[in-house]
Write a protein that binds this DNA or RNA. Structure first.
Lengths: 333, 333
DNA sequence: CTGAAAGCGCTAACAC
DNA sequence: GTGTTAGCGCTTTCAG
């Protein structure tokens, strides 16, 4: 293990000088600087992250919602974006899982293992939020608890996203829309984005004076088929479907077709999902900007770590892209 | 921040005594012990992970292959199992990504940030392997480089897995089998498990004197359909398919059906994938024990961290489960 | 069974 | 512009 003292000896300077060269916290003569840098290179010196005086760990905690009903490919979009951003700022990422709960956060914070927290998928009344407020390290949430004073949150405006889907369909002439949501466990957990999307969807339908029915959907082919069949049977007037469930998306069109409905002629479909997925399935969609959310959250956290200011709430507006799964409603002659 | 000195003062003992109570590295009288423990509780003391003398970070690095062609739901099976195991041993997990390459490992090792490494998806000639050998910290690989002296590896015997699929089909009377593999980038990267499965498949077919054709498949519906169509067209004698591509699995049966082939009557299908997935799609399969591999790898790493012995190579034997996608070959009368 | 004290690698006063 | 030195929180000798 090469220490700063080794480097100092090799370069013929004091340890502090080496430290200053490395951190740039005081001006050093060009000659000394290059001497030191050369020694660092030659000896293969790497700072010991555990050194007490450094006080900053250069590590951020990323708290992942690895739990039932969470769609992993989408989750990983957030994660890779967040990690990439972290690495760009020379930060490492310590992985925590939601099931470690509030104690997990406390333990890691108290151990000075991380400089800050990025918490994903926060619930409306998340028990980790009080802990995040207590600990003296900055944190950024992806998602929003009901009460957000003092927190920094990044989120898609899911309420507006749900509403946007309805607006689009209403504009096309649809008078009865259905909603296929996440698996029911997700709602049972009081997951913010799921609840808000539903709420936005419902409210918009009311505003536009059109009828709506919503149903949770489990993440398998049969459940999707069953949900679609049940909707079509019980709500024969329904001509459009909003789907807020990435895992189900791949089966919705197939289910409709197998039940004798054409998309978009008989039933229009709007998804809320990452653009790539919608593109692949050729679905009209409101974009879920997972990468942007993950990236922005980490950037905000970094800003806070540097003591900079950060907006308490970053709410991305929904963006709808028309594809071939929606069309003006055909009226029977 | 509560330090060990605070606890010592509060309990009326020396700091070292507190340390010994906490680590259990020397016998302490019951009274002293309980006094100290009480103070710890009262003051809410948590050890500072960065303390130099501790030398152990109680963190392991997990190196993830977040790269094109990797099926994330399966990856996350490994990951959750590994994390769970780590937490059971009071270890935290530092996340690294494969794209950080050998330098990433070096940096983290030199910084004393982690006690060991768990590296996933190692290539046959992985450039991280030399680095892992150099650094003085234990590491466990999921996968196997061609040369594995001194390393600890955990893997499914993918060669045997590929062979097992062929054996099963040959036993059922099939004389011509096809292989749908991972996306071509995966082979271009020299990914061990992909190459070995192919090799095992090919060799077994030769041994059994049956013909075989293999094709890489990209991760989208159209590519799967295209691959299946091309196979059926160019190899009309083919009556069975081995699929080693989780992302493609969901579309294989559909593609066959849409091309007028019944499963299993016209074309039998064997998958290599996690059991849950095969169960859901009702496919005969060789089990990919992702959780067991992730779990075992972490257990081995923990053993090594404690200075224990660890088998250099843990190779799980493949296990085939029959489901409704394979049946004895129908011979034309 | 317990205390005192040295020192891990590094930074940040405080000198000059 | 540079060197000296006192700690950061903890473990671990070495002494009782």
């Amino acid at each position: 293990m090469v220490t700063i003292a080794d480097v100092a000896r090799h370069a013929g300077v004091a340890p502090s000088t080496v430290s200053y060269v490395l951190t740039g916290k005081r001006s050093i003569s060009p000659e000394t600087r290059s001497k030191v840098k050369e020694s660092v290179r030659l000896l293969g010196y790497h700072p010991n992250a555990g050194a007490l005086a450094a006080s900053r760990a250069n590590v951020v905690a990323l708290v992942l919602p690895l739990r039932p009903g969470v769609h992993l490919p989408v989750l990983m979009r957030y994660v890779t974006a967040a990690i990439t951003s972290a690495r760009e700022h020379d930060l490492d990422v310590l992985l925590l899982t939601a099931d470690q709960g509030p104690q997990g956060l406390r333990r890691v914070a108290a151990g000075a293992q991380v400089d800050g927290f990025l918490v994903m998928d926060v619930g409306l009344d998340d028990d980790r939020v009080p802990v995040l407020r207590q600990i003296s390290r900055p944190s950024v949430l992806i998602g929003r608890p009901t009460v957000l004073d003092g927190l920094i949150c990044v989120d898609l405006d899911f309420e507006a996203a749900g509403a946007r889907c309805v607006e689009h369909l209403a504009d096309l002439g649809h008078r009865y829309v259905g909603f296929l949501g996440a698996p029911s466990v997700v709602y049972q957990r009081n997951t913010g984005h799921a609840q808000r999307t539903m709420a936005g969807f419902g409210a918009a339908a009311m505003r536009r004076g059109i009828a709506s029915t919503a149903l949770p959907v489990e993440n398998d082919c049969e459940s999707v088929l069953a949900a679609v069949r049940s909707l079509l049977r019980t709500q024969p007037a329904m001509t459009a479907l909003v789907v807020h469930n990435e895992a189900a998306l791949g089966w919705v069109a197939g289910s409709l077709r197998s039940l004798g409905r054409r998309v978009p002629e008989d039933v229009a479909v709007v998804a809320i999902c990452p653009d790539e997925l919608a593109e692949q399935l050729q679905l009209t969609s409101v974009r879920l900007p997972a990468e942007e959310l993950g990236w922005r959250a980490m950037e905000l956290l970094v800003t806070r770590l540097k003591g900079g200011p950060a907006a308490p709430l970053t709410l991305l507006p929904p963006k709808l892209s028309c594809r071939s799964s929606t069309a003006p409603r055909l009226r029977r002659a």
